[in-house]
Amino acid sequence: MNRIGAKRIGWLQTRTGDDHSRLMLLLLQAMLIVAALITLLPYVWMVSASLKSNADIFSSSIQLIPAHATLSNYATTLTSTPVLPAILNSIIMAGGETIAVVVTSIFTAYPFARLRFRGRDTVFLLVLGAMMIPSQVTMIPTFILMKWLGWINTYQGLIVPRAVTPLGIFMMRQFMLSLPRELEEAALIDGCGRLRILLQVCLPHLGPAAATLAIFTFTTSWNEFFWPLIVVQSEDMQTIQMLIAAMKQAEAADWGVIMAIITLSVFPTVAIYLLLQRYFVKGVAMSGMKG
């Protein structure tokens, strides 16, 4: 075996102790480092700019680490921009959507995974088909519906049209199918109702799937731009993403302040990702490969 310990080297057929392949491995490692640097550089540049004074931002030399680091952009952000209400709006929207999607996915997925009824497979195909419809097709009538209901500029207008997702139903169903049936059969023989089985037998095992779906939904919703842009028309209801876009569009855009707001807006999703990474990888595998 190679000394670098390439046990699962797969596609790269290295020969033991071969200098040529050791050089190859070094080259591959260098490629990884370059890829990581390209990925990280914009983040470093963003945080660095948020800590710079205007004089340093408009400087003709590259300063990855600010020469005169200052928190003044963050102070300006907090005192003279509506960043806190915007963050609160985003938390309410993303939180509400997450709870709604997890609950509706569980109740909708269960019959598809476990129950026998006429038309089940046809209805499930329709759910999958709904995934194919671009949101731009449904957006205009949904906006008109929101107007009729008086839901423009409201949290329900932001949340309700996104409260059920085909992807969530699909993910939850796949997970339920992987649970052993025996768990439920014992309860069924004892004469337990299906609702009780779902809530007391099935639900306790859904933790990992629910967590994956919740994290996915929360970050997607936090980052969502298109629908809030349409359904929100007043400044006090705007989300953090809308605020950032509006600030960049403003006549005298203050780049230091904008970078500070962006850094604040990026922080929650990146933190969730770094802390709960295993759920993300699982989510990608669940949504992607079993289709």
């Binding site: 990884l32 990581a36 993403q241 993300f280």
Partner: peptide, 22 residues
């Protein structure tokens, strides 16, 4: 490396767009 390369996928397009404008 896996962690780093996935990072942009959890970052909003609005934030990314403006950082890249810069």
């Amino acid at each position: 490396y896996r962690t780093i390369l996935y990072l942009p996928a959890v970052t909003s397009l609005v934030a990314i767009g403006i950082v890249w404008v810069w």
